[in-house]
Nucleic acid binder design. Structure first.
Lengths: 165, 165
DNA sequence: CTCAATCCCGACCGTTAAGGTCTGGATTGT
DNA sequence: ACAATCCAGACCTTAACGGTCGGGATTGAG
């Protein structure tokens, strides 16, 4: 439950990969274009994920304006913006669709049980909080975080959270 | 995506209902027993949800120690603890099972793609944050929150969130 | 100009889990 | 003894997820 789809996972991985390929920003030209084009096939191989599936995911991200694509030999995908300007939220939303923690919260705000579903409001706030949470994470945050010595069980608990109900 | 199951929804509603039935704490006896017994059938009717399904949910919650049950005529379910000591997190966990935002994070911490899944750590923190978020919500927070004049579109944005990556 | 490497798109399919039902049995108050 | 309730498990249906396939449209390279 409350699970991200694998597609979203794959999408985030791919974006991270593209951000890394761009290099740690050559310092010289900060506006040099955001990342080199990589083919779907290459990225899929790098992470051992089904190429055809990843292809579709990348297409989706391109349609959403997160990636730019280029057909032809040596074509591929590149970030449409710097990695620091792409949030996990928009990626997930682009791939998995709108984010609703509960079936009560639909696009129109109404729920099938409209009147009797007394729990809607509080959950809606949780929903928004999660949204804010994911909006605060950028692709650039994903790279270089992987430096956790294996075995050291990386104390994770640091999530400082405050929610106002 | 990232959706709570309906079962969890129903469970929360039922708990809220039980908490309300207990009354706004008679002020006199704060330790008077937490709530009156209500049959699964009654609760189901109150919210128009399938009785047999709710029955199973309540059984699950009873097994988890969140509710106490009593068979026989005028039997039913009651909160095992005061509503202020039951968190949304434990309810959801009891009903939907362990909370993993991504398929990468399993019970053993490992993921199928173990080595190449480079995104695990950051998402794990998101996971923990959501857990903390839900742990901060108690059943008692759910009641009386529903006072939002319909039509006033209740500005929701107040979720104060800070996450430390 | 042709060819190969790409991206693009829609159809298809198997598996799984969610949501819900049914049936039979075990408690317990009246 | 009986009716109301909880308990437990098998069962079914549907939809979404994860993945595959095949055909078509770009575009750079030789």
């Amino acid at each position: 439950m409350l699970r991200l789809t694998k597609k979203a996972d794959y999408g985030l991985m791919a974006l991270k990969y593209l951000a890394e390929q761009a290099g740690p920003v050559p310092a010289a030209e900060p506006d040099a274009h955001v990342s080199l084009a990589q083919s779907a096939k290459d990225i899929a191989e790098a992470y051992h994920i089904p190429p055809q599936l990843l292809a579709k995911i990348l297409q989706t991200l391109a349609k959403a304006g997160i990636l730019v694509s280029h057909a032809g030999t040596n074509g591929g995908y590149a970030l449409a913006r710097p990695a620091s300007q792409i949030t996990a939220f928009e990626v997930i939303r682009a791939i998995d669709g709108p984010l609703f923690i509960t079936s009560c919260i639909t696009i129109h705000g109404a729920c099938d049980l409209t009147s009797h579903c007394t729990i809607k409001e509080p959950l809606r706030k949780v929903n928004d909080s999660i949204k804010d949470l994911l909006s605060g994470i950028r692709i650039s945050d994903l790279i270089e975080t992987s430096e956790s010595r294996p075995g050291t069980e990386t104390a994770v608990g640091g999530g400082l959270i405050s929610i106002a109900l």
